[in-house]
């Protein structure tokens, strides 16, 4: 197996995630896209680990860390979305434009 076949799959997943991140209006779907991007990173980490075969299996361990952090991120992210939804009765991210000037 080539290393690159995994890396390119990772790149594909990542760019699909970016597309979703930029194009989705619903905040929950934006979060889904972010999960895709994190998953792409996991693919890369594990592929490199298999390629380098280090004794300390750092690639896999960091993949686990990424999964953990992603879980935390989803928890907080959904809580924020819930909060926004409660205050504005909409979870559409393009209606949140308070950041302008």
């Amino acid at each position: 197996m080539l290393l690159n076949q995994f890396l390119i799959l990772g790149a594909l997943l990542f760019s699909l995630g970016i597309y979703g991140l930029l194009v989705r209006r619903n905040a929950v779907m934006v979060l889904l896209s972010i999960e895709l991007m994190l998953n792409a990173v996991n693919v890369n980490l594990v592929a490199f680990e298999a390629f380098l075969q280090n004794a300390n299996v750092g690639g896999q361990i960091f993949a686990i860390f990424v999964i953990t952090v992603a879980a935390a991120e989803v928890g907080v992210g959904l809580a924020i979305i819930l909060m926004i939804f409660r205050n504005r009765t909409s979870a559409n991210i393009d209606e949140l434009d308070l950041m302008k000037w």
Partner: peptide, 14 residues
Amino acid sequence: TRLLQTGKVQQYAG
């Protein structure tokens, strides 16, 4: 320059 700032997060991200 403030016209650049639409306040839409996704445009910033893009």
